[in-house]
Design a protein around this nucleic acid. Structure first.
Lengths: 208, 208
DNA sequence: GTTTACCTACCAAACGTTAGGTAGGGAGAG
DNA sequence: CTCTCCCTACCTAACGTTTGGTAGGTAAAC
């Protein structure tokens, strides 16, 4: 019952059915601010008043762009995995060396920690499973699918793991990195993240 | 700046300075229900009305046992790692085989998933770092310390890992298991957890 | 003159918390 | 033996605040 994920996406900044006239950049600012807030406080900790203040508008104005919190959350999570997929594609094509790309994969998640001890949006939202609207949860799952698919593909291309094992290994790496983020956050110490990644390499989970 | 953790604790169910007359079991029920709720909804998702209803009392009555939400949260987290430390001690002395104990370590966390897709209280609370009162956060950190100390000790005793590396390996295992829990929860599928643990063993992170 | 992009001004519900009350029991004084 | 006093273990009722959400307006752009 796995949802197929197309990694080849054309990354538009607007939905295909709405024509962008001029700068509807308020919508973008809402999306960006909501992502930042949710990376620190989760979906439950995201509220319209603080979000609006961060954007520089009033809370009621958010409803001009999103029907409600559930749809905003889904849009934020979708944008998050879209951006992540684009970054992974860039990482893969940059140098075209699968081993180098794998080596730099943990950096993606490191950036969040480096930015005020935040974590991956979808790691936080995974914890919030019971209180997340369905539309949000499915986007969170797609984020995991995108990352696992990229890791599996790159792992197989690197020749470091047998093709038959690449999927399981990809999932193990993804989960382990999510855990490392969480541990580092709980001490507000990015050094813990770095040490854990080193530990994964030493143990043979991640290619050294 | 690491807090020393004494693993040898006498596990009393009451504070030493209060003499237990008869069954003050309401306090215990509050603690147990709060733990269960927080494992599914986090500290932020824990509220007095739902908690009181689960216990069978009124919300205001909780204040008879705890000064406020922060102290309740800290008491819940403290009890959580106390129980966890006792369970680990039992696991270690059961059979007295370090390798067997290590093999069964992931079962501890598996139980939470098997119980309505809940996760380790402290994994959830680690994500909530920014919104957690200090007293709660330090108990959460102690939970990690207790687990890492047990893993490190058992790893070293097993002879599977060099003593110099046991601490780093312990941390890696703990973080990886936390991540595995999160991934399984996000799909409400305990099979994902089992597969990830198998993957960790296959990759050499966990002893097979 | 309709649409876009906001705003002010609300609302009902839920939140942690507080005030003040009550039923019952144990302990000491008379 | 009983009366008073205090403690425990709750309760009802409300507080102020915050939450997601709504109704309706306005000023500019097309």
């Amino acid at each position: 019952m796995r949802q197929a994920v197309n990694l080849c996406i054309s990354f538009r900044r607007t939905d295909s059915n709405e024509d962008v006239t001029v700068g509807s950049n308020a919508r973008e600012k809402i999306l960006a601010s909501a992502r930042t807030i949710a990376q620190a406080h989760g979906y439950g900790g995201l509220n319209f008043r603080d979000l609006a203040e961060a954007v520089g508008i009033k809370a009621a104005s958010i409803y001009h762009y999103f029907p409600g919190k559930a749809e905003l959350g889904a849009a934020v999570a979708r944008r998050y995995w879209e951006d992540s997929a684009a970054a992974l594609e860039a990482l893969a094509s940059d140098g075209a060396d699968p081993r180098g790309a794998l080596r730099r994969y943990p950096e993606t998640f490191r950036k969040a920690l480096a930015s005020d001890n935040r974590i991956c949006l979808c790691s936080f939202m995974a914890a919030e499973y019971d209180d997340l609207p369905d539309g949000v949860m499915s986007e969170v799952q797609t984020f995991a699918d995108v990352n696992v698919a990229w890791l599996s593909k790159t792992l197989a291309a690197s020749g470091l793991v047998q093709a038959a094992d690449s999927d399981a290994r990809a999932r193990a790496i993804f989960a382990a990195i999510a855990g490392a983020q969480l541990m580092a956050r709980s001490r507000a110490d990015i050094g813990i993240y770095d040490a854990l990644i080193d530990g994964y390499r030493a143990a043979g989970l991640l290619p050294a």
